[in-house]
């Protein structure tokens, strides 16, 4: 029934002497929403950067559909590969020299901007504004719009609610929930926010010491016996 979309096999990544990922294994399944949780600095962003091909891993392999070991792709194939992903970066990463319309144009594929703005709850008037004129929450919405505009095969959300106040965070969570449930798009969410996990995760992976220490259904997260994960969840809720 479940179909594997991305297979991360024994992937390691170090910076100088610092080991961040240590023979990590993780499967991502099609049309499911996976949340990666873990302490700050545990390597969640590094893992997603390896998956999308922005960073080369040192060892192991990452397979995507029929593509084996994406590390070996040529520059051109890599560009092609990356375009399969829609990414909401941790700080939105909108191009600050361009207005919102021009920003969204990068991802534009004939779908109407009006519709997409509606989906992420932004007014039309925002199109002529510059990123620096928007609140952080609005920037995230634009980032989200840019990520889904290109109809990606996989959606990656890096801490979509971090740095937002609880009310805005809740709005963003509900927004993502709607998108994930409605579009049935394969989604990887890196988060600190247990509310995000409860709202829209099907599965959860807990990253610690460079490996996935716990993996399971989001509904069963409270039945887990992994002590460090229990501590982590208690610590932030």
């Amino acid at each position: 029934m479940r179909k594997k979309k991305i297979i991360v096999k024994n992937v390691s990544k170090s910076f100088k002497n610092k080991v961040v990922l240590n023979k990590l294994n993780l499967d991502v399944y099609e049309s499911e929403s996976l949340s990666i949780i873990g302490e700050s600095g545990s390597g969640k962003s590094i893992l997603t950067r390896c998956i999308v091909g922005l960073l080369k891993y040192d060892d192991g392999s990452i397979d995507f559909g029929k593509l084996n070991n994406i590390n070996t792709l040529s520059d051109k194939e890599k560009m092609n590969y990356m375009s399969k992903f829609g990414i909401l970066f941790q700080n939105s990463a909108l191009l600050d020299s361009l207005n919102i319309r021009e920003n969204l144009k990068f991802a534009y594929k004939k779908n109407s901007l009006k519709k997409i703005l509606n989906e992420v709850g932004l007014p039309q008037s925002i199109l002529e504004k510059y990123p620096s004129e928007l609140s952080v929450g609005m920037q995230k919405r634009v980032g989200l719009a840019r990520a889904i505009l290109k109809k990606p095969e996989v959606l990656i959300l890096d801490e979509p609610t971090t740095g937002l106040d609880p009310i805005i965070a809740r709005q963003i969570n509900l927004l993502i929930k709607n998108l994930v449930r409605k579009k049935k798009i394969t989604t990887i969410t890196v988060t600190h926010d247990m509310e995000s996990v409860y709202e829209f995760a099907d599965y959860v992976a807990f990253l610690k010491n460079g490996i996935i220490e716990w993996y399971g259904k989001a509904r069963k997260i409270n039945q887990s016996k992994n002590s460090s994960m229990i501590k982590f969840i208690k610590g932030i809720t």
Binding site: S83, F85, G86, N91, A93, L94, L95, S97, R146
Partner: peptide
């Protein structure tokens, strides 16, 4: 300064994933 800021705020990474070299 401009390109450095784009690099550290992941704007350059964003470009790459938007099929823009």
């Amino acid at each position: 300064a401009e390109i450095g800021t784009m690099k550290v705020t992941e704007q350059i990474d964003a470009l790459k994933t938007l099929s823009t070299n």
